[in-house]
Amino acid sequence: MADISAQAPFRLTLPRLPWYVWAALIWIVLVLVVAVFAPLLTPHPYTAMKLTNRFVPPFDRWTHPLGTDELGRDVLSRLIISVRISLLIAFGATLISAVLGTTLGFLAAHFRGWVEQLVLTLADFQAAMPFLIMALSVLAFFGNSLPLLIGLMGLYGWERYARVARGLAISANTQGYATAVTQLGAAPQRIYLRHILPNIASTLIVSMTLVFPEVILVESGLSFLGLGVQPPMTSLGNMVGYGRDYITRAPWIMLSPAVVIVLTTLAVSMLGDWLRDKLDPTLG
C-alpha cells in the first residue's frame, strides 16, 4: 500500500543520500541541463559537414573535443542534440503512458464490471506481447515521424500504471478518505483527481522512474535499427546505429552516445530503485 505519510517524500534531508544516489542525481541534472539548453551548448551546428575534417579522433583538436564523424560533423554537437531528442521522446512517452495508464486504472476501479475486465485484459495483452515487435509492426504500417514515435512509445508501460492506479483506487474506495469524501457529496472526478491522485502520486512517480529508462532503451534500440528517429534528426540510438559502420576505423563515433545511454539508464534506474525502497517497498 502506498501509505506514505505526507512529509516523507518532501522533507528529505539532502546530505544523507547514499553516494550512488548523489552520483545518479548529478548525472541526471547534467543531462537535463544539456537537453534543455542544447542549441546554446553545441560548439558547431550539428549538421555542419566538413569533408576535409573527417574521422578526427577525440581529444585531438580543441575545436572537436569528441572528434568528428564520417562526414566531418562534430561528434560533441551531435551528441548534445541527440541527448535533447532522446530525452524529449522519453519524457513525452513516459508522460503519455502515465496519464493513459492512470486514467484507465481509475476507470477500471470506478466502474468495475466489464470495464475493469476490459482494462485488465488489455493490460495482460500489453504485458505479454514484446513491445519491440508491436512497435516495429506499427512503424511498418504507418511509416515514421517524431509525433508518431512519441505516441507509440507512449504505449510503453501503460499497463503498469493502470494496475497500480486500479489497485490503489479500489483500496481507497473501500475504506477511508475516499468513502468520506463520497459521503460529502463529491462527484467522482473530484474524488479521483483531488484526493486519490495526490495520495498515490508518489507510487506513480516511482513507477515512472522505473519505466523511463526502459523507454530510453527501447527508443534507442529502434533508432539504432534505423526505424526510430530519422536523419537528419539524430538521437542517441541513431548515432550508435550509424557509428557501427565505422566501428573499425572510428569507434568513438558510437562509443560516446553508447556511454551516455548506459549512464543515463543506470542513473535513472538507480534513483528509481532507491526511491522505491524508500517510498514504496511493495512495488514490483
Binding site: 529508462p213 532503451l217 534507442s220 534500440g221 539504432f224 540510438g237 550508435v240 546505429g241 557501427r244 566501428i247 558510437m254 553508447a258 545511454i261 548506459v262 539508464t265 543506470l266 534506474s269 538507480m270
Partner: peptide
C-alpha cells in the same frame, strides 16, 4: 544492474 542498463546493441558492439 549493469545487465539492465546496457542494451544488447551496445553490448554487441
Amino acid at each position: 544492474v549493469a545487465g539492465f542498463a546496457i542494451p544488447s546493441f551496445i553490448l554487441a558492439l
